[in-house]
């Protein structure tokens, strides 16, 4: 049910995206002097195609119509029992994973990681890239995954050290150090 609603929302969002690019493309000029293709041609054409395709997809979802499968699927019918799998279908989530965490706990973890990521990136100008990402890594391993503190810190330190060696020392890439790192 959630997937169905998510699908509808995604198709609607894509239709809007297509419409926006169509409008933008027309604004840039679809054709220029002499009927030549102009700077807005590709965005307008691709935007319109996206709008139409997304609406078709939306209608198929609403009416629960089976859409035309890609060519391979049509060939498979009658040959094999099931359709070729996409990446997801293989990993149908069991309700409880090997650590006994249920769906809700895992969703909470996901949100924690995403929020931590955003916070970490926002902190880069303040505390520097490597420190900030090191903290993110330790947080993910210790707090989110509840791994052993000692091992997590060691893994973090080794990874940060290795990346420092490769990117900063060997490749000479100037990573931001933040206001605390001085200059």
């Amino acid at each position: 049910m959630i997937t169905r609603r998510a699908n509808l929302a995604a198709s609607a969002a894509l239709a809007l995206l297509g419409a926006a690019f169509l409008a933008g493309g027309i604004g840039y000029g679809v054709f220029i002097d002499g009927g030549l293709v102009g700077p807005g041609f590709l965005p307008a054409a691709a935007g319109m195609a996206l709008l139409v395709l997304a609406l078709v997809d939306l209608v198929q979802h609403v009416l629960r119509i089976e859409g035309t499968d890609a060519v391979d699927d049509a060939l498979y019918e009658g040959l094999v029992e099931d359709r070729p799998l996409t990446t997801d279908m293989l990993q149908t989530a069991p309700d409880v994973d090997i650590f006994g965490r249920d769906q809700r706990a895992r969703t909470r973890q996901l949100i924690m990681v995403v929020v931590a990521l955003i916070v970490a990136v926002a902190l880069v100008p303040l505390i520097g890239l490597l420190v900030s990402l090191g903290l993110l890594m330790a947080f993910a391993a210790i707090v989110v995954e509840r791994r052993s503190v000692v091992v997590s810190l060691i893994v973090t330190a080794v990874t940060v050290g290795f990346l420092y060696l490769v990117f900063v020392i060997v490749l000479g890439i100037p990573v931001p150090v933040g206001v605390l790192g001085g200059d």
Partner: peptide, 9 residues
């Protein structure tokens, strides 16, 4: 066309 899913998508 080589994607496993729907052509439209």
């Amino acid at each position: 066309t080589f994607q496993g899913g729907k052509l439209v998508r």
